[in-house]
């Protein structure tokens, strides 16, 4: 499906990627320049998207436009089709009707997914696991340097030579984030990436997600069952019910956001009441 749209990217993009300097200290300034030089995020347009499994219609016509660089959260009760929508956007499944377009040709490396499970290769060291994220550039000469830089971004540079089995759940998920980031994706899809973490680790991971999103400017799509997480992170919260977008809520709170502020709490309350009223109907 989308692979048909993904052809080649301008040469300049590849060239600028290859010029990265490995030192962590210069990363930040360089990134600023890079952001000005190119818009990193991709816009996303979905028209009349339908998907069914056997005789169960999961998505019944989704129409959605996400501007480049927006952070969108998708919430809904379990089985509402939110994860399916994410998998379709990421190109992991085929759909029956409708279209998904990114406004221009994209490469596989431009769209990355992060799952609830870290899905690290247990037989590869942390650094090698991050290198997997480079896609076709895995064997290029600067693979190590780029992977190391991504590891530094998620704060795990000192774990580069460890086996994944010795890391904690939160650390594994950070490695998975590093692997998703290493190819400089322009759309990053999160499928409940923090669902299995404890409350404190989850908050620090939310901060990390927000920070890398602000630094890199990719378009972020986060599926979550935690409404407070959705309002804390997203510019916009979509409530999905019975395969359609039931509510589209904009979150205008300034960043960095204060967790538990009255503004976020009232927004969270209203989204929860939408979800619960949907629950009552069934």
């Amino acid at each position: 499906m989308q692979t048909a749209l993904r052809t080649t990217l301008p040469e300049t993009e590849l060239a600028s990627r290859a010029n990265f300097v490995p030192q962590a200290r210069v990363v930040r300034e360089e990134r600023q320049e890079e952001r000005q030089a190119q818009t990193t995020g991709l816009p996303l347009s979905i028209r009349g998207l339908r998907k069914s499994f056997v005789d169960n219609e999961v998505l019944r016509g989704i129409d959605l436009h996400i501007p480049a660089g927006q952070f969108v959260a998708i919430v809904g009760k379990s089985g509402c089709g939110k994860s399916t929508l994410l998998r379709l956007i990421a190109g992991l499944e085929k759909f029956e009707a409708g279209s998904i377009s990114f406004g221009q040709d994209v490469q596989p490396e431009d769209i990355r997914v992060m799952f609830q499970e870290p899905r690290l290769l247990p037989w590869a060291r942390v650094l090698a696991n991050v290198e997997v994220g480079l896609g076709r550039d895995r064997s290029s000469g600067d693979a190590h340097a780029r992977a190391e830089k991504a590891l530094t971004e998620v704060g795990l540079a000192d774990k580069r030579d460890q086996w994944p089995s010795v890391l904690s759940g939160g650390q594994k998920q950070r490695v998975a984030l590093g692997r998703a980031l290493v190819s400089r994706p322009r759309v990053l899809a999160f499928d409940e990436p923090l669902g299995a973490l404890d409350a404190l680790t989850r908050i620090s991971m939310q901060r990390l997600l927000e920070r890398v999103w602000r630094d890199q400017g990719f378009t972020a799509i986060l599926v979550t069952h935690d409404v407070s997480e959705a309002v804390a992170l997203a510019d916009r919260v979509l409530v999905i019910d019975e395969g359609r977008i039931a509510h589209d809520v904009t979150v205008n709170a300034a960043r960095p956001r204060e967790r538990g502020s009255a503004e976020l709490a009232s927004l969270e309350g209203s989204i929860l009441s939408h979800l619960l009223s949907a629950e009552d109907r069934t």
Binding site: L92, P108, E109, F115, E117, R119, V132, G135, R179
Partner: peptide, 21 residues
């Protein structure tokens, strides 16, 4: 199978998938 799906998403060819996963 989740690791195999991960390998495919990250663009591994069949031989790479076999060797690495």
């Amino acid at each position: 199978p989740q690791l195999i799906e991960m390998g495919r998403i990250y663009g591994m060819t069949d031989s790479e998938l076999f060797r690495r996963v």
